[in-house]
């Protein structure tokens, strides 16, 4: 931040991620961006909500313990969206799980994401709320202002909307949304 010169809004990393200077990212060390990801202004990413692995028996899980949010390629996080890794209560221990977001995903302005997994080619509309530990499978679409309840599984290619979200149609596989152009235009 030392040199005083006109800067663009976005910081571009080697992998092509464009991160707005006005984004609010916490716990950067626990976030993996898959490359060519765009994080726009005022987007909040809670990388500090880590898995608190208290179970000593599961040695395999120790390796992924330090990851809170993971995105794929061409994930577009619009202004004001919130990525909040979900908490889960299992066998008397409470822990946060890693939030995984696939490739070519659009997350609309003001959306609040507490989903566990979002697949690839997913469109999430403005102001949608994805409840705790919900699953959005590949190619699904969540309409603007939808409230996906906690634990809901949105199947591949479904369109869901409303409060609470219900299936209202299917996307079909013809013309998936392309994140590349959005990435280029920013």
């Amino acid at each position: 931040m030392a040199p005083k010169q006109a800067k663009g809004e976005y910081i571009e990393t080697e992998a092509g991620n464009k991160v707005s200077r006005r984004s609010q990212i916490h716990g950067t060390t626990n976030i993996i961006l898959g490359g060519r990801t765009v994080i726009q202004a005022e987007a909040v990413i809670r990388g500090d909500l880590l898995r608190t692995s208290t179970s000593t028996s599961s040695g395999a899980q120790q390796s992924v313990a330090s990851l809170a949010v993971q995105t794929g390629k061409y994930a577009i996080l619009s202004p004001g969206c919130v990525l909040h890794p979900p908490r889960k209560y299992h066998r008397g221990t409470l822990s946060h799980t890693t939030q995984k977001i696939g490739d070519n995903v659009y997350i609309g302005p003001g959306a609040i994401i507490e989903a566990a997994t979002i697949g690839s080619n997913v469109w999430i509309g403005a102001g949608a709320v994805l409840g705790r530990l919900s699953f959005i499978r590949d190619g699904a679409k969540v309409l603007d202002g939808a409230v996906v309840p906690g634990g809901m599984i949105v199947n591949s290619g479904d369109i869901v909307g409303g409060r609470p979200a219900r299936k209202v149609g299917e996307t079909g596989w013809g013309d998936p949304w392309d994140g590349r152009e959005a990435w280029r235009s920013i």
Binding site: V19, R21, R22, S23, A41, E42
Partner: peptide, 13 residues
């Protein structure tokens, strides 16, 4: 990221 704090407070709030 440590840089996010001062800019965002001036911008958003």
């Amino acid at each position: 990221m440590s840089s996010s704090k001062p800019t965002s407070t001036s911008q958003q709030r």
